[in-house]
Design a protein around this nucleic acid. Structure first.
Lengths: 221, 221
DNA sequence: TTTTGCATTTTTGAATGCAAAATTTGCGAT
DNA sequence: ATCGCAAATTTTGCATTCAAAAATGCAAAA
């Protein structure tokens, strides 16, 4: 059993929400479940604490990180700041093939939007942003982005998604793709940063969103 | 002996360059030196690996992270992207008192520039950027910034600092302070992002810079 | 009935021990 | 003398063990 595997498995448990935010992480229990001893488990918890997914309290054990509204706003700000940076860098380095891939993903996402399939739309959205971040060709940036988005996803935070906002998000994505295709880094950064400012006040907690019915929500637009 | 203390002490050892980049980190030796057993040491190394300061090789121990030129470029890019984001956010939130503090630090830095005291100039520079990051009021951002700047500092990378570049850097700092005082977030972001683009190709390795004589260097302008 | 003090239990943090893997060392053959 | 291979040593990774701190439960007193 490798470290990375242990870290990955615990991360998955946290991201799945199996251990809810703020809940204690019982070492012994997890040890039995993963069939490892406490030593590698504790090493993994330290790593996850450094990532911000776990909170360590001296002599009081570890808890799944509980994020306040403020924490979430901070994470969203940084997330979108990183996306803006990635977009600008990507414009300088992205290959035609990568643009084509993103364009295809975008078309796919728009199709899901037309079908009002939020889950699939969400997946496409995420895929596009990850593709842009990868196209930036900066592993440091990609690493920070992965860490920040993991924390956001884990919290199951969502932004309220009215039909108007959804339509706007699609339009903004159009503009993003356009700027990418024109390799207009400054313009793209502008779009993404404006997007950031627009969304600044919209982030709020909606708890564990059940994406059923008409209460449409989306976590990263 | 708390974990944090162990992590901090090893981090200091790495930042001091006492263990040079790429060198092996002998567990036993460090254990004796810090007077702890291998368990907490290994936990600390895992944390530092997550921070990017240490590189873990399965069954082959840990090494002080060796950064390539590419790694450094990536780190600088992200560092400046974070500074730009911090500047924009700071404009919305910074207090008059904080601006005054930064203005004072700026004046201080300019004075060191006039005296051509690079070391002190460098300190002031760093203080200003850290103040801006703090003024952004975003601990997530501050944490990522600290991690990235730590990695950069540890590598002892520097950018070549000609008299012209130094003068330009001072001018840019004037502009930054100005935008801050006007609380012009968009303008500030523009300045900082332009700064980023200007510096894009300038980053190069100068090894462990001895800041003596006229070979003026500076790591973060 | 509620609260406070103490003893027990549980859990965390760290040290040690043990097995596996890698590195080094030594010996023999070419 | 050098190369190759195998044994010995070192080092890593994990499990177990031990000590200390915190949580829990119980009883006694207000």
């Amino acid at each position: 059993m490798l470290h990375e595997e242990v870290v990955g498995r615990i991360r998955a448990i946290l991201l799945d929400g199996e251990i809810p935010p703020g809940a204690r992480i019982p070492e012994r229990e997890l040890c039995e479940r993963l069939e490892i001893s406490r030593t590698p488990l504790r090493e993994a918890l330290k790593v996850l604490a450094a990532e911000g997914l776990v909170q360590l309290l001296p002599h009081r054990g570890s808890r799944a990180a509980k994020l306040t509204d403020k924490d979430m706003r901070d994470l969203f700000e940084v997330c979108q700041g990183l996306e803006a940076l990635a977009g600008e860098l990507a414009c300088e380095r992205i290959s035609d093939a990568e643009i084509d891939t993103i364009a295809a993903a975008h078309a796919d996402m728009v199709q899901h939007y037309r079908e009002r399939d939020l889950i699939q739309y969400y997946r496409g959205n995420r895929a596009i942003h990850e593709a842009i971040v990868n196209a930036a060709g900066n592993p440091v940036l990609a690493g920070l982005y992965a860490s920040v988005t993991a924390r956001i996803r884990r919290a199951r935070y969502v932004t309220p998604m009215t039909p108007q906002r959804w339509a706007l998000a699609v339009k903004e994505h159009e503009a993003i793709l356009n700027a990418l295709q024109r390799r207009d880094g400054v313009g793209l950064a502008h779009i993404l940063r404006a997007h950031l400012r627009h969304k600044r006040e919209e982030v709020l907690q909606a708890g564990f969103a059940e994406t059923e019915g008409n209460d449409v929500t989306l976590s990263i637009a």
